[in-house]
Nucleic acid binder design. Structure first.
Lengths: 123, 123
DNA sequence: CGGGATCCTCACAGATACTG
DNA sequence: CAGTATCTGTGAGGATCCCG
């Protein structure tokens, strides 16, 4: 289980940090941002994010489902069809995470400039 | 370089994702939250966060400094004294990240409940 | 005290193959 | 199509030593 990048089944970790880490995990962030737009099917989501292995996407979705942020709707048809969407809790988190994503886009050039200054200052 | 949990010097990565990943990186999140309260000295910050190795804290701070989010003020005294604070850019990011932290605290019990339901549902 | 340089290790994450 | 299972490397991250 656990998609978390660290200390997955961390014992001596306050659970608060754990949730925060699931939400801010590499793929967790991107999944929340995408699902904030609209529901997605598995492969569709995979393509939308890009460069995610099936395994990691599955793990991420399971972790977020377990935390009650993502709703999984598996239809018993052939071929299988599974839709993922956000729960109310997930929408709240997604809003905050998306805000971060937006901020990043807006401030990218400032960051790039800062980097050039920083790198330049050390010959 | 790079504190990021993933793909650190990612080549084929859009820089937008890179910044997002620095900000949402394991220790990056916690550093921003702490520095959002007030400036800290290195060891002080280390204690405030808890369970961070010196190495990781150093790396994280360097990455954030390079991105122009953190200001480093090294006083040339003995023993050395280095103060860290947020830049304007950093404050903006910290606000968003802190919001996530606050949300996590507030919604923790819902998450915990969701987990119990999820785990219970699979015997 | 702040942090650079090394070494080591484990678990994250990818690739592949198989199933319903 | 949507997963699960297994196998493996690679690098994040911790520990330790050292130096200004």
């Amino acid at each position: 289980m656990a998609v978390s990048k660290w200390n997955v089944e961390g014992e001596a970790m306050c659970p608060r940090r754990l949730v925060l880490e699931h939400v801010t995990s590499r793929w967790g962030v991107l999944v929340l941002i995408e699902l904030n737009e609209r529901p997605y099917r598995f492969s569709e989501l995979r393509r939308a994010i890009g460069r995610v292995s099936e395994k990691m996407l599955t793990q991420t979705l399971q972790t977020l489902e377990r935390d009650g942020l993502v709703h999984r709707d598996a239809k018993p048809v052939i071929p299988p069809r599974v839709d993922y969407s956000l729960t109310e809790l997930g929408r709240e988190a997604a809003l905050l995470v998306s805000a971060l994503g937006t901020w990043t886009e807006e401030r990218m050039d400032d960051v790039v400039k800062a980097r050039e200054t920083y790198d330049g200052a050390r010959t």
